[in-house]
Design a protein around this nucleic acid. Structure first.
Lengths: 250, 250
DNA sequence: TGTTTTTGAAAGAAAATGATTGACTTTCGG
DNA sequence: CCGAAAGTCAATCATTTTCTTTCAAAAACA
């Protein structure tokens, strides 16, 4: 077994389980303890994981944003359901804004209308959009390394050039009092501005985002319609007086 | 078995499995280890795969492959020479502009300074720049499908936000009378504006571009220094009175 | 025919691996 | 709290595998 393959397996396991023991990896890869130790050392140096006594753990402190790859493996099914519904809202002739992030990314494959224009701040979205022959604009600005999102002054100025029929956003926290929040202040500014430039704004969020609060506020709840997969019991009331929620079920 | 056939098999295997060992390929193609190694080296140089200890692996940057892979290996060599020299002009602390296009793309791997800022209109350049931990800005705007370059009103507005120490451009035609030209008018506008925003402008062009005229004019020759690999006999005079040319030799 | 390109083999360099050693951590019973 | 047993760790070494370079034979080409 080649080294990169082992690394891939280790990261995959880590993504699924959060913590792994050296013993487990040894059995799965049929290699010696020494080799696994070396692997873990390398991966730690590259900031892919954190070594702990007896194995390794995912590095994802609460302060840290999960990177794009980690996110995309998690809750993929739910995300796709939500994304599919959101995509169905897009109508012929629309000009839409697609936020960066993996949930919004899933929307692209479900976009079956042909005569639309898309503006996005997600670098990763562009190839997929072009593949579908969708005219695509980006807002420009600083490229945030971890998420590949355009942010900053350039992004805000770029946004200012456009107006949208609909905008679709991802967020990290949804809270009745504190509204929509996300860890990065720069990204929050972009999202906020996007909402203000659209006739209709939609926030795509799986159920885990409810009652969460992140650092930077994007806007109040009433400024966007929430699309989610389920609502925890008893929390409906707090939200439904403040905004519209669409629950998508399989 | 012919070389292109082997290459096809290798790429096919790679697409299916993600990682392949040299041993496997040897058995499948009935050729020697040396030959496979040579194949892998070539394919790596053309950015089709990544060599790893024991075999090869698919390169995952989805953004980096698409239409850019249509370059002959010989032309690539010249481009890389030109690109390498251009990259050596970048100094610590510079803010530089990198035009879209494959020649400029080759510059990135030769950028060995750490404290620089890059602005680009090339979507494909961004992942490579981020890989090298270089702070990267894009100018935004419409994404031209064929070249993945940002163009149009949004791109011009995005450019306006920045000023550069140096800008590096690709062109299609260089002519003493008609100046620098390129087929797409929108791209010409962006290139023209980039030149006007930079203290020093450089045009990277292999020798085949000389005496060519394309549709849209970018600027006169004197507005940029030309970096090329060779000068056809007898044409020096026509150019050297009008601009500066740096000829890079192996 | 002579020239260039492609191929396979061989030698030494480099990298990856597994086992071993002694030091360090954790656990758990007293 | 202590100390011993069990588990884990970094460092090192010998072995194996893989890599690069070089050279000459074979093949393709003019």
């Amino acid at each position: 077994m080649l080294t990169p393959e082992r690394h891939r397996i280790i990261l995959q396991l880590l993504k699924e389980k959060g913590i792994i023991k050296i013993q487990e990896i040894m059995e799965l890869t049929n290699t010696s303890e020494s080799t696994i130790r070396r692997d873990l050392s390398q991966l730690e140096k590259q900031k892919f994981l954190k070594r702990i006594h007896g194995g390794a753990s995912r590095l994802q402190g609460k302060l840290q944003e999960p990177s794009m790859v980690e996110k995309s493996a998690k809750n993929l099914q739910e995300k796709r359901m939500i994304a599919k519904y959101a995509a169905s809202l897009v109508e012929e002739g629309d000009c839409i804004y697609l936020d960066a992030g993996s949930t919004i990314f899933e929307m692209i494959e479900f976009l079956h209308v042909t005569d639309i224009v898309v503006v996005t701040n997600g670098l990763m979205h562009v190839p997929s959009l072009l593949n579908k022959d969708i005219p695509t604009y980006t807002i420009g600005g600083f490229v945030k390394p971890k998420t590949n999102a355009f942010v900053g002054r350039g992004a805000l100025a770029g946004l200012e050039l456009y107006r949208f029929d609909k905008c679709f956003l991802g967020v990290n926290g949804i809270h009745p009092q504190f509204g929509f929040t996300t860890p990065d202040q720069e990204e929050a500014s972009v999202k906020h501005k996007a909402i203000s430039l659209a006739r209709e704004a939609y926030v795509l969020a799986d159920s885990t985002k409810f009652s969460e609060i992140s650092f930077a506020k994007i806007s109040d709840l009433h400024e966007a319609t929430i699309i989610t997969n389920e609502l925890a019991d008893g929390i409906e009331k707090q939200y439904l007086t403040r905004t519209t929620i669409k629950v998508v079920t399989a």
